[in-house]
Design a binder for these strands. Structure first.
Length: 429
DNA sequence: GCTGATGCGTC
DNA sequence: GTCGGAC
DNA sequence: GTCCGACGACGCATCAGC
């Protein structure tokens, strides 16, 4: 009752979990700099501290009390306290990579869980995800790390990937995810064991390695990790040739990897996503991804939209493939449209609305949209991969689906069929 | 004690 | 994870 | 170029309802 109108709006959003302020931690860092100097000049200093101590509340208090310089001085990674991971950006072509990064190291991109391992001999091993959540309980394998590393303490960066019991191959993402659990870890870890593919080291024996360049860190890694256990070094190749990068990319894709990671050789470990130090290549113009083709699907219904989508009247829409007389769901589409395209699709869909679910639709309950539409609009959809789906009635779903185009030239009888989708699924293996 | 719906966190 | 928009 | 918040599938955990 004591709050003004604007405050009421934001306070009410807190328990709902949709604060939607338009700024986040990074902007707070800007603000902390402004607070002291009236510009962004202290941002680099603040950012460096934040990467190792990613808590704007703690930082702000320190800064308010002691000023930026003093508060940020000497903040280095501490084993046991999670550090923000270094993330990758995206570049379309290998030639642009070399232009931006010079000499690079090329690694396969593994489809697993990003894990930072914090180890202190005789004391603890902990695992943190890229969002700084502790997930040590997921990995009983970590207990034996002391036998496989030459150090008294370290922070390793790696990708944790399951090993399929039957095929002895790297498990797909869905299978690896079965290890993300609290209960029955012992049982599950027998079925799906985990390998840790290490590609970086941030701290060793009390020494901060974040400012060392990538090749130096890689050298330390090679001296630190012993062969034979579940801890493996990701293989890599140094090059400055765009042709070589492209070749490696195609090779890794054909071997079943997600793509490649390309890393600037003379760069420190800089958490976050900026600066063109790490770049990923999943599927570009140069070569084909797992799902090379797009598919044409029938729009079956749509939802109202929240936040910035609320004014469009569409937030996401349900799409399906043809199976004989039936239309079965395979995905919801919520990205790939410009604001204008959202307005456009709303104009069209509202004319196709129907009160009841059309008879030919087979839709599981939890996919019921706010509004049903009669089968009429066809859209072209891209995705990274087709997965077996326990929830979509087509039995197959799209991983990272996005809209490519409206297909006004097509009508529902020309949509992709379930049979065709199953064909594409088989092609992936 | 079971089941479907919802929440949370990974990609 | 993907994507588009604001700056 | 960077930052932000719309939205995706899916596996496990938890909870409401029976």
């Amino acid at each position: 009752q004591n709050l003004d109108q604007l405050s009421v709006k934001f306070v009410a959003r807190i328990p709902v979990g949709r604060l939607r302020l338009g700024f986040s931690d990074k902007t707070i860092l800007d603000a902390l700099s402004w607070m002291q100097t009236g510009d962004k000049s202290l941002k680099p200093l603040l950012e460096k501290a934040y990467q190792v101590l990613p808590d704007v509340g703690l930082l702000a208090r320190e800064i308010k009390e002691n000023g930026v310089e003093k508060a940020c001085q000497g903040i280095v990674p501490v084993v046991g306290i999670p550090v923000l991971p270094m993330l990758s950006q995206r570049i379309k072509s290998p030639s642009e990579m070399v232009e931006k990064m010079g000499e690079v190291d090329v690694e396969p991109k593994l489809d697993g869980l990003r894990i930072l391992i914090h180890f202190v001999r005789g004391k603890f091993v902990k695992a943190f995800t890229r969002n700084l959540n502790e997930t040590s309980h997921m990995f009983p394998e970590l207990a034996k790390i002391d036998k496989f590393v030459n150090c008294s303490s370290a922070i390793f960066d790696c990708e944790a990937v399951g090993l399929d019991e039957k095929t002895k191959m790297m498990a797909n993402f869905q299978t690896t995810m079965t290890r993300r659990r609290k209960h029955d870890i012992g049982e599950t870890s027998k079925k799906v064991s985990i390998d840790f593919f290490i590609f970086d080291i941030i701290s060793k024996d009390g020494k901060n390695l974040m400012d060392k360049n990538y090749l130096e860190r890689r050298k330390v890694l090679e001296e630190t990790v012993k062969k034979g256990g579940p801890f493996k070094l990701v293989f890599h190749e140094i090059t400055k040739s765009p042709e070589r990068i492209n070749k490696l990319y195609k090779k890794r894709i054909s071997e079943g990897y997600e793509g490649i990671m390309v890393k600037k050789v003379d760069s420190g470990y800089v958490p976050g996503r900026t600066g063109w130090r790490w770049v990923k290549m999943k599927q570009g113009e140069e070569a084909q991804g797992k799902l090379a083709d797009t598919i044409d699907v029938v729009v079956m219904g749509y939802t109202q939209g929240r936040g910035k989508r609320a004014s469009f009247g569409v937030g996401q829409f349900l799409v399906g493939v043809k199976d004989g007389d039936k239309i079965k769901t395979t995905s919801k589409i919520g990205t790939g449209l410009t604001d204008e395209e959202f307005r456009e699709i709303e104009r069209r869909l509202k004319n196709l609305r129907t009160k009841d679910k059309p008879k030919e639709y087979e839709v599981r309950k939890n996919y019921t949209p706010d509004f049903w539409v009669i089968p009429s609009l066809i859209v072209e959809i891209a995705a990274d991969e087709i997965t077996k789906s326990p929830t979509h009635t087509a039995g197959l779903a799209l991983r990272f689906p996005r809209l490519i185009n409206f297909r006004d030239d097509k009508d529902p009888s020309e949509a992709t069929t379930l049979r065709e989708l199953e064909g594409l699924f088989d092609l992936q293996k």
